[in-house]
Structure formats: C-alpha cells, structure tokens
Design a protein around this nucleic acid. Sequence first.
DNA 1: CATCGAGCAGACAGACCTGTCTACTCGCCT
DNA 2: AGGCGAGTAGACAGGTCTGTCTGCTCGATG
Lengths: 212, 212
Amino acid sequence: MCATVDRSVWYRQGVIAKTSERPESPARRRILDTAAALFYAEGVHAVGIDRIIAEAAVAKATFYHHFPAKDELVRAYLEREFERQRGALEAVRAASGGPREALLAIFDALAANGAAAGFRGCPFTNAAAEYPDPAHPVRRTIAAYRDWNRGLFQELCAGAGDPAPGRTAVLLMMIRDGIVVGSDLDDPGSLGPVVRDAVNRVLSGGETPGAG
Amino acid sequence: MCATVDRSVWYRQGVIAKTSERPESPARRRILDTAAALFYAEGVHAVGIDRIIAEAAVAKATFYHHFPAKDELVRAYLEREFERQRGALEAVRAASGGPREALLAIFDALAANGAAAGFRGCPFTNAAAEYPDPAHPVRRTIAAYRDWNRGLFQELCAGAGDPAPGRTAVLLMMIRDGIVVGSDLDDPGSLGPVVRDAVNRVLSGGETPGAG
DNA sequence: CATCGAGCAGACAGACCTGTCTACTCGCCT
DNA sequence: AGGCGAGTAGACAGGTCTGTCTGCTCGATG
C-alpha cells in the first residue's frame, strides 16, 4: 500500500495535464532505462539490484520507493517493451498501403532488427526462459504480449483476404519466433532473404492449404 | 589437471571394452540426471549446486571431483541432450521410408513433444538466454547443436530433391524454433495442424519460390 | 515558516551462492 | 598387507543476493 506512489500531487501542481499519460520521475525513468539495458543484454537473474541502482545513480531506498520488488521491475521492463513494440508496429501499419504491405514491412523490420548490433533475441522469450511458472505476473505479461502480436497478425491477414487468418497468424508467429531465435543464435545474414520468401509464400498460399 | 578423472584404470580392469563408450560412475550419472531435470524445469541460474547435490544424494566433494565448475556441468547437460536428440532423430530417419517422410515425421514428433506435459521449450535456446557471451563454452555447444540440426535438415532436403536445400533448411529451422517457443508460451494444441501444413507447403513449394 | 515528499548515502540482516578443505569409510587391485 | 581411488559428511571462506532501515538534504507547497 504505502509502496504505491501517490501521483495526485503531480496533477495538483499541474506538471502534466490530467488526461494525458502518467508522470514519470527522472529517478524512476533512469532505473527503468538501466534495468532494461542490463536485463536484455545479460539476463534477468544475472543482474542484481545493486548493480542497477549503481548504474542508474539512484539510492536503494529510491528504488524500493518506486518498485516493491525486483520482479515488479522485471514486469515493468517488459510492459514498457510491450508498449514500445506496439507503438512501432502500429506506426509501420499506418505507414503501409494495406494489410499485406504492412505484414511484409513488419517482417522486413524484424529481420533487419535481428541483424543489428546488440541484438540478443526477444526480450519476452528470453525472460520466459527464466520464469518457469506460467501463472507468474512476468509470464502473464509475456502471454499478453504474444496474444496481442498474434492478434495483430490475424487482423492484418483477415484484411488481406486470407480465408483462414487465425491459422496463418499462428504460422506467422512461428516465423517471427524463428527470426528472433535464429538471428541471435545463428548467422543473421542467412535469414534475410529466406524470410522474404517465406512470408510471401505464406501469404500467397493461404487460399487453399490443400493437405489434410 | 588433477580435476580430470583418470579412466585408464577402468580400461585396465576391463569394465568396458577399450573401443566402446566412456564409463560413467553412478554418482556422476545421478548428478547429471538431477541437474538436467532441474536446469530444464527451472533454469540454469535459478538452480544452485547445493540443491543439485542434495537431490542427487551426492557429497559436494564428489560433485567437484567430476565437474570442475558449475558451467562445466551445464555444458555436460547440454552435450548429453545433444547426443540424446541426435540419437532420436537418427532413429526417426532410419525408420522412415525416405528423406521427405523423415522430415515430416521429425516435425510431427516436434509438435507432439511440445504438447506433452512438462514441456518447457528448447533446452538450448533457454540456456542461451542465460549465457549472453557467444564465445562461452556453453554457447559453443548450443551453436554446435544448431549447426548439426540445420545440417540434418539440409541433408534431408537435398535427398528429397529440393533445389535449394540450404535455404529450405534455414526455413525449417525457423519453423522448428517457432514450434518449441510457441508450444511453451502459447496454446500447444493450436500448433499441431498448422505445423503439418507448413512443412508440407515448404517442401512442396521448394521447387520455385517465384515471388521476388 | 512549517511540512511533506523525493531522493541520497549507506549500514545491516539473513539467506544463498560457488568453491575449498579436512577427515573419514569402503572396496578393489596389486 | 598396503595403496589408491571413489564416495560421504560437513565446516568454512568470501562473495552476492534481496530487502529493510536510519538519517540526511533539498525543493516545493501551503
């Protein structure tokens, strides 16, 4: 209870408009930025609170003022990454001519992102490897992310005239997972051209699966 | 140096034939079995040595007699898993009528395995999430496993008459990763039928990718 | 001016981690 | 009989982990 931050004062002093997004103290932001970089690069269990507060230049009490426990920081890290990706993919969708073009652009971006320096796989699947319990809040966040992602694919497939958008979305999720895992563990360069063909083929061949 | 077990005595006393596989002491086997179950179910960093030796009913000195450090145990765990999978897939290949049937059988087995109770994703990708450094021995073992797996796919594709077996093998690896990730994090039941179609389509459509 | 909250600095507790070491038993081989 | 290696039991060191707590400064608000 007392761990929750009362932000009413922010509204009262007019720092932000009442209807806009939540205020974020500089300290909290620094904690989250540092944690995100470290968690992603080195893994969740491998990075301790002490290191985060040291690199974020924040007192320990300040950390525990903003986050009741480390797991909650992990959840916040994934939640913010969720929002970031949602924004990015929605931007791609808005910039594309249609659903089919949006899907192709998304997968191009996935492959390019995987080939970029510092890529270490998907933050969500990496975190899931360290949280075995599906009922854990961290895992629930991961599940929510994946549901959203599959839903977006399904929506775009339906918009592109796919007769079985649900099935195709599952298949696209498989390709997505293959890209992020392969970009991290194999040669990212070998994936690019294959991805293009694969997505093209999946979207074209969606009309009649045929085999039973 | 002194940490390595001198097995010459085993050969001398004829416990095993000189040309057959290495002998394995019961204690070492118990350690490895326990570690494999715990590492897979809960993650590598989350399981400590103390717990392994307790559940394996082994003294700490015995553990450090067989393994110089924890990382070496992790490597041995993955190495053994590598051998296990190699054996399993080679058996499937031998039992199949031809390369194409072998590939279909392998992916059926992957989907079935992912739907089984206790499935927690791929031991290799899960471990990779906890070992960021690609030069680490654990990561090298993971890379070796993936190279072997892709190589097997390529070989089978070539045998099935695929004109671009290298590319198709990369694509099959992506589907493989999609199966293990999706079976762990999403509903495993939704994957089964999609997998069959996907592999069928990949293998049939291999002749002319067409789209550019 | 008084108060209150944000943040800083750092000690501290208690648990857990890896890895080392001592001292002992047991069984096999020479 | 003697030696040696495998294994047991458990103390120990040194470090790290999370989370709590005390005491302080500073700035804004009433």
